[in-house]
């Protein structure tokens, strides 16, 4: 298969030593196996995430997203933009849809972009990495690269909100998306398909500002994973990963629980299943160690 090339929008958390740097490392490993070339959009900026609205109205937020498109269109023409972060993808896509729907908004946006010497043309598509995997490769092709099936490991697939709503992955449902489970199964792991908290909100950005309320959500998400016998949670979203992993200690303090549930990225699973080392899968980036994955990573490949 020929090398696939994409304009990469890593987002603020995924950079070197950011809170999702383990995501970035594992995505890079995974892409290497899949022969995918990711070229970072030069000088990309923050998407505004989901909690910047006290600072501005929607136009400014569309403009900052349009800037990334404009940069990609100028410097990496013809390439789809790929985001790994749910919020980055959602915000970029929202901007693309809105600018496509309103000539007024498009004109206003370009008027503002001119201040930075840029222009939005609406030529590039923005896609989540998961879309690339499913649509450009397909489960079968992804499965062919597996050398260390994740046998015996039970995964609670936690999809969360923003890779799922309001846009979601094509063909998947808002209430019960199956792609993460299918990815797990493709990697030879056991997917806990009945895990009922797969689209529960973790509090998102409000995990910071409203910790008590968010941690109630996080408790449900982790508890249910235990109820279903999960060895670990897997997620496609960096904010979900951080919230659900980091706050388990707080939840334990508050609720007297003894949670110690690893929360991993699909890209980490895939890196391990593709024969990558624990380091390549950035398993050293886990605050709660994903021991079972580490064990598999340490074993020799089956084929």
């Amino acid at each position: 298969m020929a090398k696939k090339e994409y304009a990469f929008y890593p987002g603020c958390t995924s950079h070197y030593r950011g809170s999702a740097s383990n995501y970035l490392v594992s995505v890079e490993s995974m892409c290497k196996t899949l022969d995918v070339k990711l070229t970072e959009i030069p000088d990309w900026n923050c998407c505004g995430a989901s909690v910047s609205y006290a600072g501005s109205g929607e136009l400014a937020r569309h403009v900052i997203n349009a800037r990334n498109f404009a940069l990609a269109e100028r410097d990496l023409p013809g390439q789809d933009i790929v985001a790994t972060c749910a919020a980055c993808w959602l915000n970029a896509r929202e901007t693309k849809e809105q600018l496509g729907a309103s000539a007024q908004l498009l004109a206003d946006t370009n008027e503002a972009l001119k201040e930075a010497g840029l222009q939005y043309r609406g030529e590039s598509e923005v896609r989540h990495m998961v879309e690339v995997l499913i649509e450009d490769f397909g489960y079968e092709a992804l499965g062919e690269k597996v050398v260390k099936p994740l046998e015996g490991v039970k995964f609670a697939g936690y999809v969360g909100c923003q890779t799922n709503r309001p846009f979601g992955i094509a063909g998947e449902s808002f209430e019960n998306p199956m792609y993460l489970d299918r990815l797990v199964e493709t990697m030879g792991g056991e997917a806990l398909t009945k895990y009922e908290q797969k689209v529960t909100c973790c509090g998102g950005a409000l995990a910071v500002s409203e910790p008590e309320k968010s941690q109630k959500q996080i408790k449900d998400i982790v508890e249910s994973a235990y109820d279903h016998g999960a060895d670990m949670i897997v997620t496609p979203c960096p904010l979900c990963q951080a919230n659900v992993e980091i706050y388990q200690a707080d939840v334990n303090r508050k609720y007297g629980t003894k949670f110690n549930m690893p929360v991993t990225y699909y890209s980490q699973l895939m890196t391990v299943a593709y024969g990558g080392s624990a380091k390549e899968a950035a398993l050293d980036g886990q605050i709660i160690r994903a021991t079972k994955l580490e064990e598999i990573a340490a074993k020799p490949a089956k084929k």
Partner: peptide, 17 residues
């Protein structure tokens, strides 16, 4: 790198809105 342009662009957006 282009912090100046970035900020100018936001200012402009707010002004238009």
């Amino acid at each position: 790198k282009d912090v100046k342009g970035f900020q100018a662009m936001i200012r402009k957006a707010k002004e238009i809105e």
